[in-house]
Computed example of a mutant assay.
Amino acid sequence: MIGLCVFLMFTPTQADVLAVGLMQGMAILEVDGKRVVIKAGQTRSGVKLIESNSRQATIEMNGQQETLMLGVSLTGSYSEPTKSVVRLPRGENGHYFASARINGHSIRVLVDTGASFIGLSSQTAKKLGINYASGKRGRSSTANGIVKNYTLRLDHVQIGGIKLYGVMASVIEGNFPDIPLLGMSFLNKVKMHEEQGMLILTDTH
């Protein structure tokens, strides 16, 4: 599935970037009117594609990373940052979503300041290759009743250019939550604030 039409303008370089196609690990962009095909990790016309799927893409330009959601137009004036900064546009139902890498695997997460840890279902943990059964056992109350959970440290969690190691996670037996939760075990280690419909995360390390 290919998503279409995300527009982004960068200043002071005045480069216009238009995403005309988004797919897993690849994006079709128009940079100042020139169409380029970029795979994850590649740089074309001064734009580096960090990662992408059919819904969103993370790019880097002039040292600044942005998470682009389909249908969201962004305009900004950026200078070279001294620390990694990630901007997340407000998405579905006012929530913030991000493209993350957990132990090296790409996955979409929901920012949840009410969650103490990174929250994963056991089904998701298995897909990410996490040996959650080695964690500390406990129990959680869910809509489906009392279920087992496991608390452990993830090797690393990355959002854009922000990469943290040894982040605490809670894995709940079953298929809840269906979207992994980016909880306070990650968020407490970055500077976080909202600005004009964007959630801005700044690396403090």
Rank of each mutant, 00 (worst) to 15 (best):
V111E: 03
G71F: 02
K127N: 03
N53F: 11
P89S: 02
H193R: 15
E195W: 10
I146P: 06
A57F: 10
S141I: 01
L68Y: 02
Q65H: 13
K127G: 01
V47F: 04
S52P: 08
G174V: 02
S73I: 03
G119T: 06
S122V: 08
I102P: 04
N62L: 14
S134D: 05
V171L: 03
Q158K: 12
V31N: 00
Y96I: 12
V147T: 14
G119E: 07
G104N: 05
M198L: 12
L120I: 07
T151N: 15
S45D: 06
K48S: 10
G129T: 03
T113Q: 06
D178I: 08
T204C: 05
K189H: 14
S121M: 06
V86A: 02
R90A: 08
G145A: 10
N188V: 09
L128G: 04
G76Y: 06
D32F: 00
E66R: 15
L199E: 05
G41D: 07
L154M: 14
T124K: 03
R87A: 00
R44T: 06
T151V: 15
M198E: 09
P12I: 12
I172S: 01
M192W: 13
I118R: 07
L4V: 11
L154Q: 14
D112R: 01
A57E: 08
L29D: 00
G119A: 07
R35I: 01
L164M: 10
F7W: 12
S99L: 14
M9Y: 14
I59Q: 15
L152S: 14
M192A: 15
S79I: 09
I159Y: 09
S106T: 02
T151G: 15
N175I: 02
I118K: 11
G183L: 03
S116V: 11
E195G: 09
M26A: 04
S77I: 10
L49D: 13
V20C: 07
A169N: 04
H156D: 15
M168S: 03
G166D: 06
K83H: 02
F10Y: 14
T124W: 00
L8Q: 09
S73L: 02
G25C: 01
N103Q: 04
T82W: 03
Q65Y: 13
V157H: 08
A100L: 09
V157F: 09
S77H: 11
G3Y: 12
V109E: 00
R35N: 00
V147H: 11
K148E: 14
S170G: 03
T151H: 15
G33Q: 00
N175M: 04
A133W: 07
L22M: 08
T202F: 01
S141P: 05
L68G: 06
V72P: 02
G161A: 10
R108Q: 02
H105D: 01
Q14M: 15
I118H: 08
H95P: 06
F10T: 14
L88F: 02
F176W: 05
S79T: 10
T142F: 00
T11Y: 12
T151L: 15
K163S: 09
S79E: 09
I59V: 14
L187F: 13
T58P: 12
G21N: 03
S116N: 12
A115F: 06
N149F: 11
